[in-house]
Amino acid sequence: MRPSVPLTRRAALTGAALTALPGCVRDETDASVSCPPSVPTDESLRIGFVGDVMLGRSVDERWRADPDGPTAVWGSMFDRLQSLDGLVANLECCISDRGEPRPGRTYHFRASPDWAVSALDRAGVSCAGLANNHLLDFGPEALIETPSHLRGEEIAAVGAGESRENAFEPAFVEIGGLSVAVVAVTDQSPSYAAGRDSPGTAYAPLDPNHPLTRRRVGGALAAARDADPDLLVVTAHWGPNWVTEPTETRRKFAHWLVDHGVDVVHGHSAHVIQGIEVYRGRPIMYDTGNFVDDYAIKDGYRNDRSFLFELRIEDGTLVALELTPVENAYTQVGRADEGVAEWLRATLRERSRAFETTIERDGDGLRVPLTCDE
Rank of each mutant, 00 (worst) to 15 (best):
T8L: 14
R9T: 15
L18T: 09
L21N: 09
C24W: 15
R26C: 05
D27Q: 08
A31W: 13
S34D: 08
F49L: 13
G51V: 00
D52N: 13
M54F: 09
G56K: 00
V59F: 03
E61T: 14
R64D: 01
P67H: 07
D68H: 10
D68K: 10
P70E: 00
M77Q: 10
L81T: 07
Q82M: 03
L91E: 05
S96I: 05
G99R: 02
R105K: 15
A111C: 05
S112A: 12
V117K: 02
C127S: 03
L130K: 06
L136H: 11
H149Q: 12
R151S: 11
R151W: 03
R151I: 01
A156C: 09
S163I: 00
P170M: 07
G176P: 09
G177R: 10
L178F: 06
Q188D: 12
S191G: 07
A194T: 08
P205F: 03
P205L: 06
L206T: 13
T213F: 09
R214H: 04
G219V: 04
D230H: 14
D230R: 01
L231S: 07
L232F: 02
V243P: 02
P246V: 08
P246G: 08
T249W: 01
R250V: 12
R250M: 15
R251T: 15
W256A: 11
V258D: 10
H260A: 02
S269Q: 11
E277F: 02
P283K: 04
Y286F: 15
T288H: 10
T288I: 12
F291R: 02
I297L: 12
D299W: 05
R305H: 12
S306C: 06
F307D: 11
E310G: 03
G316I: 08
A329M: 10
G334R: 15
G334Q: 14
R335E: 15
A336S: 12
G339D: 14
R345D: 15
T347S: 14
S352D: 03
C372M: 12
